[in-house]
């Protein structure tokens, strides 16, 4: 797929990148919904029900393939686009752009890379454990995501890293949301201001939602 992607036109690449991105954005909402169940005071009962559903439901299984595909496409195309962009200016400026631009848009590859590293850690902590590739923490079943999560968040170090990561996720999302609409050609004098507002709101609320959990463990427990 990557060799094929090289021959796509720049706009096709961007459109696929945007569609994959939007798909990941919707997935984040589902993920957040489940994570927030961690905060319920029910010993993880509801959380584990949700996790159970997500890991066994055949429809979700199919979606999982799409999800990984979405990640792969988004990452690979993101890198290809970035490499092309670097190649387009072989000699750089002495005084780099002071143009008034959306700040985060300039660092998508960087924030993206940080998120990717975290994603790998995240897989290592959960998904690979479930698959049996990585041994679960001592004394835990490999499906016991609730206890694994509690264990991780009880580490100060992990929680702080997690909080910082959420900040970068917010940066990435801040540009990503409205940029995807622009790339898909969905620009409209009436609706674009709303999309921009929604994008900003999303990029604050969702990472904040995720951040609640480590913050709860850091400061309240």
């Amino acid at each position: 797929m990557s060799s094929l992607a090289l021959f796509y036109s720049s706009i096709t690449k961007k459109i696929i990148l945007a569609l994959a991105g939007l798909f990941l954005i919707t997935f984040l909402l589902v993920h957040l919904g489940i994570n927030l169940l961690l905060l319920l005071n029910d010993g993880g009962a509801l959380y584990m029900t949700a996790v159970g559903f997500m890991t066994t439901n055949p429809l979700i299984k199919i979606m999982e393939v799409f999800l990984f595909g979405g990640f792969a496409i988004h990452i690979i195309l993101g890198i290809i686009v970035q490499v092309y962009n670097w190649m387009a200016r072989p000699v750089r400026y002495k005084v780099e752009g002071y143009s008034h631009t959306s700040f985060f848009s300039k660092y998508m590859i960087h924030t993206g890379a940080i998120i990717f590293v975290f994603l790998m850690i995240h897989f290592n902590n959960f998904y690979f454990v479930k698959l049996g590739w990585v041994a679960p923490p001592a004394g835990l079943e490999k499906e016991d995501f609730y206890q694994m999560a509690i264990l991780l968040f009880s580490s100060r170090f992990y929680s702080i890293i997690y909080l910082i990561l959420m900040l970068f996720l917010a940066f990435h999302l801040n540009h990503a949301f409205q940029s995807a609409f622009q790339t898909l050609g969905l620009s409209h004098t009436k609706y674009t201001p709303f999309i921009k507002f929604a994008g900003t709101a999303y990029s604050i609320i969702v990472p904040l939602g995720f951040a609640c959990i480590p913050a709860y463990y850091l400061f309240l427990k």
């Binding site: 036109s9 720049s10 961007k14 686009v81 092309y84 962009n85 387009a88 752009g97 848009s105 622009q182």
Partner: peptide, 18 residues
């Protein structure tokens, strides 16, 4: 026009607005 633009080696748009 897009084909020609790509062929000439211009970069991609990342919606920075500069």
């Amino acid at each position: 026009m897009v084909r020609k633009m790509d062929e000439l080696g211009f970069g991609n748009c990342t919606n920075t607005g500069a």
